[in-house]
Simulated assay, not measured.
Amino acid sequence: MADNDRSRQGARAPRKTAGAFDIRNIIGLLLGIYGVLLLLAGLFMDPDKDKTGGINANLWTGLALAVASAVFLGWARLRPIVVPEHVEPAETDPTRPGPTRRGGSH
Rank of each mutant, 00 (worst) to 15 (best):
M1L: 12
A2G: 01
A2S: 07
N4R: 07
S7P: 07
R8G: 09
R8D: 08
R8W: 02
Q9C: 03
A13E: 09
R15E: 15
T17K: 09
A18T: 04
G19T: 06
F21H: 14
D22L: 01
R24V: 11
R24Q: 12
N25A: 00
I26W: 00
I27S: 04
L30V: 04
L30Q: 00
L30A: 09
L31K: 06
L31Q: 08
G32A: 06
G32R: 08
V36A: 06
L37N: 13
L39W: 00
A41K: 15
A41S: 15
G42E: 10
L43W: 06
M45S: 13
M45W: 14
D46P: 05
D46L: 04
D48E: 09
D48P: 05
T52E: 08
G54L: 03
I55N: 06
N56S: 01
L59C: 03
L59F: 15
L59G: 01
W60L: 08
T61I: 00
L63W: 01
A64H: 07
A66C: 04
V67N: 00
A68H: 04
A68I: 03
V71P: 05
F72N: 04
L73Q: 05
G74F: 13
W75T: 09
A76S: 15
A76D: 14
R77P: 05
L78N: 06
R79V: 10
R79F: 14
R79S: 09
I81Q: 13
V82E: 13
V83I: 09
V83Y: 00
P84D: 11
V87S: 02
E88P: 03
P89Q: 02
P89H: 11
E91C: 09
T92M: 13
D93I: 08
T95Y: 14
R96N: 12
R96K: 15
G98C: 11
P99T: 05
P99Y: 03
R101Q: 05
G103V: 12
G103C: 07
H106D: 08
